[in-house]
Structure formats: structure tokens, C-alpha cells
Simulated scan of single mutants.
Amino acid sequence: MPRQWKSLALWLLLSFLVAGVASMFMPDAWYAALQKPEFNPPNWVFAPVWTLLYILMAIAVWRVQRKQQHLSFEIALWLLQLLLNGLWSWLFFGLHRPDLALIDIALLIIVLLTTVLAFARVDRIAAWLLLPYLAWVSFASMLNLSLWQLNP
């Protein structure tokens, strides 16, 4: 396997490792009992959407890494957003703290937007690959806010 494909495999592995850890904190009886907003998607939607988003995230950082060959500010931003991404599930589903999860997702949006802008300077396609993720996280933040407001 050529070196470039090995690095893509590593980025995919890292992305899905975080996804795997986050998936330890899944909807439970507490979540099922919450009052949901009208725009709350059915639970089955989340797994395929997140699977696609994690793949796009890994490809995006791989494209940037291939052009830089070292740990850069852009890659550090990407790693930070991945950490915030994984932290959200623990805060929301694990601790049952939609208020703290809302703070986390707000920080995630800021870091992710900064990552998109930083990636655009290195590789425009990499930046474009993160836009569906940014859109989904923005939607998720509205959902998080609504759940917090509906369930004081």
C-alpha cells in the first residue's frame, strides 16, 4: 500500500476511533423521555449521516496533510474539532447535560469554521469537504438548544 493511502487509512482510523468512543454514549431512557422539537430526525438517520461525515472529515485532513507533511496549525485545528466532536456525546448522552453539550457544540462550530477557513488556504477541496459537517453540526446545535429549552 503506497504511503499516501496508509496515511488516509490512519486518518479514517482516528476519525472512527473517536466515533467509536462517542458511540459508547448513545440515546437511552433519559433521551427517549425528553420532549423533542418537531424537526427532531428519527434515530436511524444519525448513524449513516455521521458515517459519511467522518469519512469526509478524514479525507479533508488527509488532503491537507499530504500538502504539508508535518503537524501544522490546520491539522491541530482539525484534531481539536475532533476532540470537541467526541466530547459532545459524553456531555449530552453520558452526563445528561444538554447545557454543557450546548457550550461544547458552540465551541465546535467556532473551531470547525476556523478549520474550514484554514484548510481553504491549503486545499480548497479539503475545505469544501468539511462544509456538510459544518451544516450538520449547525443543525445539531439547533436541536441541542431546542432539547435544552423544552426540557428544563
Rank of each mutant, 00 (worst) to 15 (best):
Asn43Lys: 13
Ile109Val: 14
Met1Ser: 06
Ala60Phe: 03
Trp128Cys: 08
Ala76Tyr: 02
Trp90Tyr: 14
Leu82Gln: 09
His70Trp: 02
Trp88Tyr: 10
Phe46Glu: 06
Trp148Asn: 08
Pro98Phe: 12
Ala126Pro: 06
Gln149Ser: 04
Phe46Met: 10
Leu71Gln: 05
Pro132Val: 05
Gln35Thr: 14
Leu56Lys: 07
Leu17Gly: 15
Ile109Glu: 13
Trp50Asn: 06
Met57Cys: 01
Phe46Ile: 10
Leu147Ser: 11
Pro98Val: 09
Pro2Tyr: 08
Leu147Ala: 13
Ser72Leu: 04
Val45Asp: 01
Ala106Leu: 15
Trp44Met: 03
Gly20Pro: 08
Ser146Ile: 10
Ile103Leu: 13
Ile55Ala: 15
Ala19Met: 04
Phe16Ile: 03
Glu38Cys: 00
Ala32Phe: 10
Ser23Val: 05
Leu91Arg: 06
Gln35Arg: 14
Gln65Lys: 14
Phe39Thr: 01
Ala126Gly: 10
Trp5Lys: 06
Ala135Val: 15
Gln68Tyr: 04
Leu14Ile: 13
Leu71Val: 13
Leu34Tyr: 11
Leu17His: 01
Ala118Tyr: 02
Pro98Lys: 11
Ala60Asp: 00
Asn144Lys: 09
Asp28Val: 00
Trp44Lys: 03
Ala22Ser: 15
Leu117Arg: 15
Ala135Lys: 03
Ala33Ile: 12
Arg97Asn: 14
Leu87Arg: 03
Leu17Val: 11
Leu117Ser: 11
Trp128Glu: 02
Ile75Gly: 06
Trp78Cys: 12
Leu147Cys: 08
Leu83Val: 15
Ile105Met: 11
Ala101Leu: 03
Trp128Lys: 09
Ser15Ile: 04
Ala135Asp: 11
Ala22Asn: 04
Pro42Lys: 10
Ala135Met: 15
Leu80Lys: 01
Asp28Ser: 05
Tyr133His: 09
Leu147Pro: 08
Val64Gly: 09
Pro41Met: 06
Ser146Tyr: 07
Arg124Leu: 13
Gly86Asn: 10
Leu80Trp: 04
Trp90Gly: 02
Leu84Pro: 04
Leu80Tyr: 03
Asp99Lys: 05
Ser7Val: 12
Arg3Gln: 13
Glu38Val: 00
Ile59Asp: 00
Glu38Asp: 02
Leu143Arg: 14
Ala106Phe: 11
Ser72Lys: 04
Ala47Trp: 07
Leu130His: 05
Ile55Ser: 10
Trp136Asp: 07
Met142Pro: 01
Trp128Pro: 00
Phe25Ile: 05
Phe119Gln: 09
Ala106His: 04
Gln68Ala: 07
Arg124Gln: 13
Ala60Ser: 14
Leu82Ala: 14
Ser141Phe: 12
Arg121Gly: 12
Leu117Met: 13
Leu100Asp: 02
Ser23Leu: 05
Leu108Trp: 09
Tyr133Arg: 06
Ala120Pro: 00
Trp78Tyr: 13
Leu134Ala: 15
Glu38His: 00
Leu14Val: 15
Leu134His: 12
Leu80Val: 14
